[in-house]
Design a protein around this nucleic acid. Structure first.
Lengths: 226, 226, 226, 226
DNA sequence: CATGAATGAGAATTCATTCAT
DNA sequence: AATGAATGAATTCTCATTCAT
């Protein structure tokens, strides 16, 4: 191999897809492969995430998989992109449906969506995060991540108090909130229920961080003054 | 080769150390191995974390490594244990040195310690977290984790308001705070500096979450009332 | 795989041996592997020259092969080196034993040696020549080739007429003669016997080329004047 | 997939073309495919000579390629045949245009033609030679080779002295000369220029071999008598 | 006839683990 | 105890070939 054969430790693995799906059959095949990959990396742990296993689970031959993805990393990268696209989609919905709400209520909705979406494939998210570090950031991924950041910023934009946070710090705060949601959602603590369930705890945490930086009149009910 | 040679995918890998170090030379050898493993898993990424590489880097033969660790997972488990012990040590110091401080000041100190310690081996922490999911939780690890939880609880115990949080929820809140620290520390946002630097953002976040659950007279300065 | 996994088409494959044989057991293992590789590439054709086949034929496991050779190209390069070393050895003997002979007799001896040596592994030589083009020229190989050129030059040096060939052309002529021997020896024509057997034809060819460039008094009997 | 899908290592690969081109469009397609194959095997090295690459380069689908060639070996065989046909064509021209010249001049012309033709696709020639060993000799190829041998023989026929070479040895000598030309032309020494350029060296070599076997009155100027 | 998606045997290579010395 | 050569199952990836459309 050339560039090829065993490129597991390559500094810059090629992460682009090999063949763009033009016909509907191809699109479906690719979807099957990604779905299989998702399940394997999410359920069984990295060790079972092998290209052969993915192909088998997708019901296609290993050769077909490599027709679309030049190497395993490209498949993983496609998976990462897909997950981010779903996050962006969810965020977009949240942004659109919270335009007229106060901060507290808006956050409650955002958290609800986050919990639901991560509940579906939390293990996948955790597993992919590690891979993300190692893989080169494709343009497509960078674009989606930019969109996510923009959506996050848009979500908080209306509430942030210009006197307390300015410029890029606005984005930083928005991303902090986003990361807190991700972290708490994925954490083992998810299972814990009871008088203080995850949703309320997350609401308290995010609101506690963000509210003091926002315009008081748009915050809504908080946990402070009591 | 026997059927058991490759235990990579075994359901329950043996995670116990093979031989407890009784002599000082052994202890030193083990320390070398763990140190080498730390560096490899932390710096180069999981892909370069191989038993042969660890042995080479530790300056011992692969046979010697297997003298002390029955398999790779046992080595990884030892690494995880070690990291947790360090966290516990750090926490203990924080607990002891914040006994008489108000919540705000105590958290500031805790955050400082966390940032420093993770700054030293953050990549290691991230990499190990994934392994942790897969490996069986050894008694030793469970004990250290219990200690960490206890220390966290102790840290907040004095401040939490019994009217607002009761029973096990106290632990949950403490661990939430701990996890928020871990998550924010390890996140890429670390690099961001400026008017709102990481330390202050973390302080805001944790305090925002915890303060409303505490006795107001012990909280100290917050970001709310402004 | 790192740079590794499948490097078949790499522009610059690593061709160095991985571990130099220090113990006698290792030396023997390497020798076995090279011998097996020789036979496979020589007898069966490139298609059967696979690392697994080589290991099997050498009676070692595939892992052992890769302990010494980082990839297939390195094995091939070692083979090429070995073949050239043998050529150099043969040449050295010829040079030493023809010091006092006339050109015609010296060439006859050289041709005899060449026919014998190539007769042993002519197919190997042909197969390796192609690989040689593709592989990077290691320092070791360059050194042996330089030695071969020097020996060839030394062989002819005494006979060449300074008035007819000067400077580097002397080397060129020597190498031409050498290549003619190689080419004719390896050619299918080898089988042809009869009134004009291979040995005589080669003698005629080389002598016909070289003699006119040599000092007449040192040439000895030729085929011309008749 | 059927057991016969991979015929790579078959003892006797089918080397016949599947469909004789009767229409001009087919002829053109075949020509495109062969041209693409030529370039790939010649320029990029055997490793890039794959059926898919050939089809892509030829601008046809892989299915179309297999319409005309039952397998890869058949394509290679067609390539070999084509190269030999070109050699035969060149030889024919040389024979026809040297009828009335003396040996020395005729050889000079032949060498010139050889250098030119090999200069065009020398790498291709070298690469194909190896394949030739492995593939079964088709009737068509045997015929062209016979024609080449006949042309070579014809080229020398007039000059050879019946007293010095008889019968089949005449052919042997002719082919020796031909092979020497091929070998020297393809060798690395090609690049060397200077007082003794390739053309002169080849002339010296062939003439040195052949002239002593020829009728002195037809030889022309040689390098001997000096 | 042409297309190109799909196939899968097989090749290269890695790495956890064993065991003779 | 320590060493490190040897092992081989498992993994990634290629490419000749088929066949439904």
């Amino acid at each position: 191999m050339s560039a090829t054969a065993h490129s597991r430790h390559d500094a810059y693995p090629n992460v682009q897809m090999r063949r763009l799906p033009v016909q509907s059959r191809s699109t479906q095949t690719i979807e099957c492969i990604l779905e299989a990959a998702s399940r394997l990396i999410g359920m069984a742990g990295r060790a079972h995430y092998t290209t052969n296993a993915v192909a088998a689970r997708a019901g296609v031959s290993i050769g077909t998989l490599y027709q679309y993805f030049p190497n395993k990393d490209a498949l993983t990268a496609a998976l990462i992109l897909r997950v981010h696209e779903r996050i962006a989609d969810n965020l977009r919905v949240v942004v659109e449906t919270t335009e007229d709400l106060d901060l507290s209520t808006a956050l409650a909705r955002a958290i609800e969506v986050a919990i639901t979406s991560v509940g579906e494939d939390g293990a996948l998210h955790r597993a992919l995060e590690q891979e993300e570090d190692r893989l080169p950031r494709s343009d497509a991924l960078a674009a989606v991540e930019a969109k996510i950041e923009a959506l996050n910023a848009a979500l908080l934009e209306r509430y942030l108090d210009p006197d307390k946070v300015q410029g890029s710090a606005r984005h930083t705060v928005a991303m902090d909130a986003f990361k807190m949601v991700r972290a708490m959602t994925q954490s083992d603590a998810v299972q814990v229920a009871g008088p203080l369930d995850l949703k309320e705890r997350m609401h308290r945490a995010i609101l506690g961080y963000v509210a003091p930086l926002c315009r008081p009149d748009l915050v809504g009910p908080t946990y402070f003054s009591t």
